[in-house]
Design a binder for these strands. Structure first.
Length: 220
DNA sequence: GCGACAG
DNA sequence: ATCTTGTCGC
């Protein structure tokens, strides 16, 4: 279960293939009272990184907690290996949360991944918590044109499977790529994400975490 | 061999 | 992601 994070691309890929079989796809818990959003950013001097996790009550979406962790760590961005770049920092941030969330929204793919183990899935396995991937752009899969209205969506297909949906979270705004991470599945993930997007494109928890990361990575 | 490619 | 200001469109 426990492994190092400075793996070579080949080792990382092999590990993903093994871990993918442990991912559990099932509806999210019926009772969700706390939802978290996570994000990571690397400053210009890429020798350290910043992670942030924000929690909100659900379905009321009242801000609950914000944790930020900054540490010396670096792993390059390699398409398909994002989890190795962001999870080490995220784990530190999650350890500092006062209250454990019922589900975690991540800024990346879940199972909509070449080896079905995107950031959200990998993080979910480590935390043993339900996770959902919310990516701003596509990594893999095909889909039809999504209607212009908030709430409209199209299935994201990959290798013959419906791995997620492309969801319009705001009218006339570029859609989001939503895919289950771990202990989650497409339908419930889509509904949760839509309900977490109030007045912006990104789910409120992720948006809050993102703002915190930006504040740290930049100045101010 | 030629594109595609989360953040 | 990060580098960066103003600006066109709904």
């Amino acid at each position: 279960m426990l492994h190092s994070w400075n793996l070579s691309p080949q080792e990382a890929i092999a590990l993903q293939k093994r871990l993918a079989s442990s991912v559990v796809l099932k509806p999210l818990p019926e009772e969700i009272t706390l939802v978290a959003g996570a994000d990571v950013g690397y400053p210009r001097r890429h020798d350290r990184a910043v992670a942030a996790v924000a929690t909100y009550t659900y379905p009321g979406l009242e801000f609950r907690e914000l944790v930020r962790f900054q540490g010396k760590f670096f792993y390059p961005y390699v398409p398909g290996l994002l989890s190795f770049r962001e999870i080490p920092l995220l784990l530190q941030a999650f350890e500092r949360l006062q209250e454990e969330p019922d589900v975690v929204l991540c800024d990346g793919q879940g199972t909509a991944h070449p080896r079905r183990l995107g950031l959200a899935s990998h993080l979910g396995l480590w935390l043993n918590l339900p996770t959902v991937g919310c990516a701003k752009t596509r990594l893999v899969g095909t889909h039809g044109r999504v209607g212009p209205r908030r709430g409209q969506y199209r299935s994201l297909l990959y290798q013959g499977d419906k791995v997620g949906v492309v969801l319009r979270t705001r009218t006339k705004v570029k859609p989001l790529y939503v895919s289950p991470g771990h202990l989650a599945e497409v339908e419930s993930s889509r509904k949760l994400v839509e309900r977490c997007c109030i007045q912006y494109r990104l789910p409120e928890p992720i948006r809050r975490a993102h703002l915190a990361v930006q504040r740290a990575v930049r100045g101010a």
